[in-house]
């Protein structure tokens, strides 16, 4: 560990000296989170792309939001219908309790409706990876008596 020295029971980490083990944990945390931020931004973009913020064509005066960036973009860019009679599943629902699978024969709709869910999965994976990374980095640096023995992550 070239970045770590032990002085009078404290640590040296990333340019900071005289760091207690709790402070060391937060320093590792900040560093690891900033390393993962690019990936987290990707996840957030996928989730946000699926938010139904864009007004749809409606009768005059009653503009209703009802479609999302992901839907519009993918339907425009991937405007392709599957061969006759082929339907693929998409995960839909106005609320979480009304989640259900609906079927589409349009590639753009298939991608647009499933991308936000991919974003959610990747968000949770990223959060898990961040905590895992913090713990293992911290445990590599800390002395045995300060190591985290058991966690949820």
């Amino acid at each position: 560990m070239d970045t770590t020295e032990e002085l009078n029971g404290t640590y040296f980490y990333g340019g900071y000296s005289n760091v207690t083990h709790v402070q060391l944990f937060w320093l590792v945390g900040v560093q690891v989170v900033s390393e993962h931020l690019g990936l987290a931004a990707t996840d957030a973009a996928l989730v946000l792309a699926g938010q139904p913020l864009i007004p749809t064509r409606a009768k005059p005066g009653s503009a209703t939001k009802g479609t999302s960036v992901a839907s519009l973009a993918s339907r425009y860019l991937l405007n392709y219908r599957f061969p006759k009679g082929m339907l693929l599943p998409t995960l839909n629902g106005k609320t979480i309790s009304q989640l259900h699978v609906s079927w589409t024969n349009h590639l753009g709709a298939f991608v647009g409706r499933n991308v936000p869910w991919l974003g959610w999965i990747m968000t949770f994976t990223t959060v898990y990876n961040i905590f895992n990374d913090i713990r293992s980095t911290y445990n590599r640096v800390a002395r045995p008596e300060h190591r985290i023995q058991w966690t949820y992550f």
Partner: peptide
């Protein structure tokens, strides 16, 4: 549309 968050449509 049945996208998440379109309850008020």
């Amino acid at each position: 549309p049945e996208l998440p968050g379109t309850r008020d449509v």
